[in-house]
Write a protein that binds this DNA or RNA. Sequence first.
DNA 1: TTGTAAGCGTTATCAT
DNA 2: ATGATAACGCTTACAA
Lengths: 342, 342
Amino acid sequence: MNTEKKDPSSITIRDVARKAGVGVATVSRVLNNSEAVTEETRRRVQATIAELKYVPNPIAQQLSTGRHDAIAVTLPFLTYPSFVERLRGVQHALASTKFDLMLYSADVPDNPGKPPLPISKLRADGVLIISVPLDDSHVQQFLNSGLPVVLVDLFHPDHHRVFVDDIEGGRLATQHLVDLGHKRIAFLGDAFDEHKTFQAMRERFKGYRETLAAAGIPFRPEYHQQGPHGREEARVMAAALLDMDKPPTAIFAGSDTQAIGVLDVANERNIAIPQELSVVGYDGIRDSEFLDLTTVAQPLYESGIAGVELLLAILQDEPATPQEVRLPLALLPRGSTAAPRT
Amino acid sequence: MNTEKKDPSSITIRDVARKAGVGVATVSRVLNNSEAVTEETRRRVQATIAELKYVPNPIAQQLSTGRHDAIAVTLPFLTYPSFVERLRGVQHALASTKFDLMLYSADVPDNPGKPPLPISKLRADGVLIISVPLDDSHVQQFLNSGLPVVLVDLFHPDHHRVFVDDIEGGRLATQHLVDLGHKRIAFLGDAFDEHKTFQAMRERFKGYRETLAAAGIPFRPEYHQQGPHGREEARVMAAALLDMDKPPTAIFAGSDTQAIGVLDVANERNIAIPQELSVVGYDGIRDSEFLDLTTVAQPLYESGIAGVELLLAILQDEPATPQEVRLPLALLPRGSTAAPRT
DNA sequence: TTGTAAGCGTTATCAT
DNA sequence: ATGATAACGCTTACAA
């Protein structure tokens, strides 16, 4: 039991009720803006609340209502700017609501069986899963838990989600290069994983292949570099590409972070951008602007906002079918792309 | 009341007690690893818990114990890499504990009177305040709330904190430039604010002045540029510096973000780094390595770890005097600094 | 060692 | 419109 009470502001609803000469139920009604209270009583209670500086105990409210007034957000920790940008959107959207933000990182170092977050003890009314590649088994656990879930930048047929059309994004980037006259176009991105919810990279690649095919350019497997995410890893892949006998004249990187890795290598080797090599990124993070990188921009910050809005809507309506919110994509032509040298 | 119970896993401690043929207190004891339980009984209860897949309701636990098992973290939102890096440390340190992480942003757009976070309804056992410039009045509110607080990258005499010696950092950077033979050394940083807890910039500047004085180099007020934080803002300040009749041969920027702004301008104007201009940053964010920027590195990630550790220690011991944890600083000489042209 | 029961501070039912 | 009171699910005196 709560023997030693630390919090000096331990004024309870009962104190207010007593002092205002009403029952606790009435105070509760005032607190929750219930209709059924005389204007007269309401004022008196409110005065007492102010006088006593009473603040309702949120935990007691939670226990009574079963609500948490909190949203759990999980993402593969903050190693990439795009995650941070999405999280900013989430934070911002949540700030104007009564919901608190509980942050969970999912970069559990290689723990395959273990779910990315402790579902059973999640003190939240809903979960926002951002960019975390989920196994089917994990998805199943969420489904079973009954906790509303919204996926951002992820796909699973049974879950609500906020997404962009990554196939279209792949097309946008590739078509831009085709239009400039490139024939030797490489794709550099993350390795695919069949069994996960994170399929964006696969789709970008798909858009790339489709556009190549439509333009009558044969796909060259050696122009497809895939590996772990990261700027450093991208440097290695870019180097492999540029070391070829017939190096590509353009590289479409699956993310800006990877595109920046390509720029690093070009810079090291004094390869002129865009004269000798065109580079297209994906995401539209802030640095892409500073670096004058042509990129397929997706609404990162907005995806956080949209995720929160969708989740809150679901909390209210509990729709039967998975809801989908699609966000727009835009090619931002900048200084890192140009026609190939003849 | 909780009429419609969503959560199907509504198995309570009473269910376990009944099924195991013991009292609820005993189940609670097992749950909390109390000594006073026979090995025999304990096993039986644990078996029943497993069988029923019982998970204690954290809210009920909180209401009963008065604990939250959560830490509130607040920072001036994730606009700068250094904040993100610190947050990563916090997250990581918390991951191995029972404490959840509640994230609050403090970038309340110009709301002077309003505290950066709603102290009274904070559902946390302690607060970690990172880099948020706090008014004295806000600090006072925290003190009154009785909530344990640890400041990171901030100073207030009445609060526990994790810090680096920014005066020393300012010296480190400046001495490096002096040692290289520079005489015309500028300082570019945030504007100071007397009344806030964020005093790092002021101290870095102080170290700069001290070192200049010790080297017999007179301080030139026009070489001191101060303005709002940000890469763009730094570009403007750098331009002002470089437009002078006698421009500095070296610039010490109060943060890497600002140093990068300086590099931008140098790049635009084809000013060779480090031949024509030396640049030193501060923080040691990841990009500083990629950009080969000489910088004063502080343990950002580690500051998050240390902040959590200090806070958890305080939660246990409730020390009477403000605790201080100092983290080391290191000058990282890289390619952006060299002797001035003769 | 174990069980009973009183709290924790709300909300919501049910009378009045 | 309002007030008593049960209930939410747990922890912990206290008694046995």
